[in-house]
Design a protein around this nucleic acid. Structure first.
Length: 576
RNA sequence: GCCUCUGUAGCUCAGUGGAUAGAGCAUCGGUUUCCUAAACCGUGUGUCGCAGGUUCGAUUCCUGCCAGGGGCGCCA
């Protein structure tokens, strides 16, 4: 790995082990604001061995392993070792990544089959801000796992089955298929759903028809199936349009809806029964996973088959686990689903373990996230109080970005401006979602996310555009500078170099916790380090040797910046 | 009642078993014969919700409490 912190950490391990009678001891190397890195491991080790920490720190320094990497090493305070990396060392590390398409990030040692479950809108229902987080976070996690060389299976678990489909199909018939199709493809899904729902609550005759239609659907009636398909197709075409606007990787090939699991659920129940887990409780078939209690302190069941004989989402989710493990060969399953589902998923995972479907070799992880809030600190709603349509949100973002671009850079052609506005607007929405810790709620604020200062997509994109601009101005092909040595002499160059080399660590930390905001923070710090460099270190006007070094440093920065943004699903324009 | 998440600067948010807890915004003050000033530089800001405990060292780990959100059987 290119990161100097991990490089010296690895080199120090044997030194620490030797000072600990051969037992491994963590050197605890961290970035530091007093130097480039601080080695903290001497303190706990000295305590454990009952020796003076400063003397132990001295012994670490005397081992000589830091000599080849550091321009300065000092023991400070009770026994911290502060290390400043030498320019020569940074130059050599940068040389190893500056012409590397992977930018120093190693492939995963073991390629896993990773299933990512995300987005999951409902057929005949509008996509709203609630779907934004799952879709955007899931997409980023997919991109990162793919980059590391894992075999990633995207799964969009759409709601395409269940009781509401009786009423939806009947409403489709009432409207006339083609009339309905017009409205639905234009994205008026909410209108359709609400009208069906209203009829259902008003008309007994309609209720009867809807219920009969559900039975027909479940029994595989041909005409009903055709109508159902039509409904699903219209919805998925609409979803595709939204995904395309949003710029996520999901396609129709990734659709694995509720309906897919219907024919398999009977077998799931049988297998639970064969495993001796199934119990009869109040007429329902249930499993009691240990560790879950209800309001009254009694064991809480996972309901597998309702009293009426119907299956529910627990059955479906269990069947889904079986499918992913046994058919798709999943090693890791990520469920990018809102925090309220936590208990349900924990119960599903527990029962899956009890049944032997989830073993130690297969990891299932709930990747929860909080809500999108309005400035009133409540769930984001439109002025009328309705949930906000995702497409409207995205269109407004592009629109607002377009106004800003027109104002700030009138020289762009209308065509370029539209394209840049799209990148900025969509990027801003995605970045504001990805850049805060996903488990928390975040506040949706147009002005903040579209600002060109602070931790925002436009700021990052602007840094990238400025680098591209340097090369345009100098009329130099970016690829041509990738073999020039980078000699980071100025403090801003030194800081930027260190940051660039830390890219693999940032990705590693991000995937360790499935937290895209860690990569976001890294990319922001990188952009920030670059702008500081940009202000203090002239590139084009520098003398020849410095100029070629700075050009190479700028190019590398642009590539890491664009690459990091791409892993987040955000585009980096060359001018804006 | 039980479970779970959250609580860090005026605001929005990072952060870590280590040394004086950091950014951005907002405030104030500077910087443009110079590669995009959509920027940069400087400036102030804290009982890290409260109380205990573990530790050489806790904002970070553990326990309890307080406040807010979410969840807790036949919808998905």
């Amino acid at each position: 790995m290119s990161d100097p912190i991990s490089t010296i950490s690895t080199l120090l391990e044997p030194v620490f082990a030797e000072l600990n009678d051969g037992e491994p001891a963590d050197p605890t190397v961290r970035p530091s604001d007093r130097a480039d890195a601080q080695i903290n491991g001497a303190l706990p080790l000295a305590k454990r061995r009952g020796v003076n920490p400063r003397e132990l720190a001295q012994a670490v320094v005397d081992s000589g392993v830091l000599a080849g990497f550091a321009s300065d090493v000092e023991i400070a305070g009770p026994g911290f070792i502060n290390v400043t990396f030498s320019t020569e060392f940074l130059t050599s590390q940068l040389a190893s990544i500056s012409d590397d398409p992977r930018l120093g990030v190693p492939q995963a040692v073991v390629a896993k089959t990773v299933v990512v479950d995300y987005s999951a809108p409902n057929v005949a229902k509008e996509m709203h801000v609630g779907h934004l987080r799952s879709t955007v976070i899931g997409d980023a996690l997919v991109r990162m796992h793919v980059f590391l060389g894992h075999d990633v299976l995207r799964e969009n678990h759409i709601g395409d089955w269940g009781r509401p489909f009786g009423m939806l199909i009947e409403h489709l018939i009432d409207l006339g298929e083609d009339v309905a199709a017009d409205g639905l493809t234009q994205g008026d899904l909410d209108g359709f759903y609400k009208a069906a729902n209203a009829k259902f609550s008003e008309s007994e005759e309609f209720q009867v028809r809807a219920r009969e239609r559900v039975v027909l659907l479940q029994n595989g009636d041909e005409e009903t199936a055709r109508l159902w398909h039509r409904l699903v197709d219209m919805s998925t075409a609409y979803f595709d349009a939204v995904y395309s606007k949003l710029g996520v990787l999901l396609t129709d090939d990734d659709l694995v809806g509720e309906s897919f699991y219907q024919p398999l659920m009977g077998r799931t129940v049988e297998r639970l029964s064969e495993a001796g887990l199934l119990e009869e409780d109040d007429g329902a078939k249930v499993v009691f996973p240990p560790g879950f209690t209800n309001r009254d302190g009694n064991p809480l069941p996972l309901i597998i088959q309702a009293r009426t004989g119907g299956f529910n989402y627990a059955t479906s989710d269990l069947t889904c686990v079986i499918d992913r493990v046994e058919r798709r060969g999943a090693d890791l399953m990520l469920y990018v689903i809102g925090a309220p589902q936590q208990q349900h998923l924990q119960m599903v995972f527990k029962v899956s373990e009890m049944a032997g479907w989830l073993t130690e070799e297969t990891e299932a992880v709930h990747v929860p996230f909080g809500n999108v809030l309005g400035d009133d600190r409540k769930m984001l709603r439109s002025r009328s109080g309705a949930s906000v349509k995702l497409v409207d949100l995205l269109d407004e973002a592009v629109d607002r970005a377009g106004q800003a671009v027109a104002e700030k850079n009138p020289n762009l052609s209308a065509e370029d401006r539209a394209e840049v506005a799209r990148m900025i607007g969509i990027g801003a929405v995605k970045y504001s979602d990805l850049s805060t810790d996903r488990v928390k709620d975040y506040m949706f604020d147009w002005d903040r996310m579209l600002a060109f200062d602070g931790n925002t997509a436009p700021y990052l994109q602007y840094a990238h555009a400025r680098i591209c601009s340097i090369f345009r101005r100098a009329d130099i092909d970016r690829a041509s500078v990738r073999n020039s040595p980078i000699v980071p002499e100025a403090p801003q160059e030194h800081a930027l170099a260190l940051r660039l080399l830390a890219y693999p660590s940032a990705i590693d930390a991000t995937l360790q916790s499935f937290s895209p905001h860690k990569l976001s923070t890294y990319v922001y710090e990188l952009a920030s380090d670059f702008t500081s460099f940009y202000e203090h270190c002239p590139v084009i006007k520098a003398d020849e040797r410095t100029r070629s070094s700075r050009l190479a440093l700028a190019d590398l920065t642009a590539r890491v910046l664009a690459h990091g943004l791409d892993l987040l699903g955000i585009e980096a324009p060359e001018q804006m």
